[in-house]
């Protein structure tokens, strides 16, 4: 809006193209979902999206995503810490592998996790005799969602941790704080915005996940059926409006999650700017 910005050319072209492409690929197709649901009355819509089986799937999808993202928050923070602060053999390699869940197709992740955690798999054969069933239970859903969300917390926390000034830590130490107090009172608050952003990203990604989950979930109604699978199931029963109604609920939630994430990122950036 300042005069200086008007100097560079290409604003109309680039923004125009951005909006056109965004509309064609994303916005117009997504609006189709909303328009399709107008075939339903409000009460019909409400009945579909609050049917017991659908509600059970929300609980599983959001519950498992929350647990998966929480696991990633704890272990992702720890992994980021270890990768930034310590030196050990193979660290560079490990660092590169953190992004594997980004790069590995979800279907491959699905069959691999199922093979590992099923009764006759490497880990499953150890867990099953002890009464821990992973494959084909809600626990399997948690495992899959933890896998796909793994890089987010590590990758958001890592740069902040790298840029953290050691002076504040030294100051805290010289004021008599022990290591734990320094971490808890000085380091952790600085990491919190990034940690929460990573958590929210992992959560948002997990909520929509389909490929890796369907192989390992068992897909029992009311027990281990995720919301994206409900959409597929409704579609296969020729219930287009029902499928779309549930899809619209997911869309609205994704959008809200994104707004939250962008808010968090804005907060994190401001925190960082203040720190520097």
């Amino acid at each position: 809006m300042s005069k200086k910005t008007n100097v560079l050319p290409g604003f109309n072209l680039s923004l125009g193209y951005t909006l056109l492409y965004l509309s064609l690929i994303v916005l117009i197709p997504l609006s189709a979902a909303f328009i399709k649901t107008t075939e339903l009355s409000l009460s019909e819509f409400w009945n579909i999206v609050t049917a017991p089986r659908v509600v059970a799937s929300y609980k599983l999808t959001f519950g498992a995503s929350l647990i998966g993202a929480s696991i990633n928050a704890v272990f992702g923070l720890l992994t980021a810490w270890v990768l930034v602060r310590y030196d050990f053999f193979g660290k560079k390699l490990i660092d590169a592998f953190v992004d594997l869940p980004f790069a590995l197709p979800t279907a491959v992740a699905g069959i691999a996790l199922t093979a590992v955690y099923a009764k006759n798999g490497w880990i499953g054969s150890i867990l099953e005799p002890n009464g821990i069933h992973v494959a084909f239970t809600p626990l399997g859903v948690v495992i899959a969602l933890t896998f796909i969300g793994l890089p987010f917390v590590v990758r958001t926390v890592q740069p902040v941790l790298e840029d953290l000034e050691s002076e504040t830590e030294e100051a805290a130490a010289s004021l008599g704080a022990n290591r734990w107090q320094t971490f808890y009172k000085v380091i952790f608050p600085a990491l919190l915005p990034a940690l929460m952003t990573g958590f929210a990203l992992a959560f948002a990604r997990a909520v929509g996940e389909y490929g890796s989950v369907i192989f390992i979930a068992g897909n029992m109604p009311m027990v281990s059926e995720i919301t994206p699978l409900i959409i597929i199931t409704k579609l296969e029963q020729y219930d287009y409006t029902g499928a779309t109604a549930v899809a619209v609920v997911m869309l609205v939630i994704s959008f809200l999650l994104l707004l939250m994430i962008n808010g968090l990122q804005w907060w994190a950036n401001r925190r960082n700017a203040e720190a520097i």
Partner: peptide, 10 residues
């Protein structure tokens, strides 16, 4: 019977 079903594939 279906209470005895642990996995429902599609």
């Amino acid at each position: 019977l279906f209470k005895n079903v642990p996995v429902l594939d599609s």
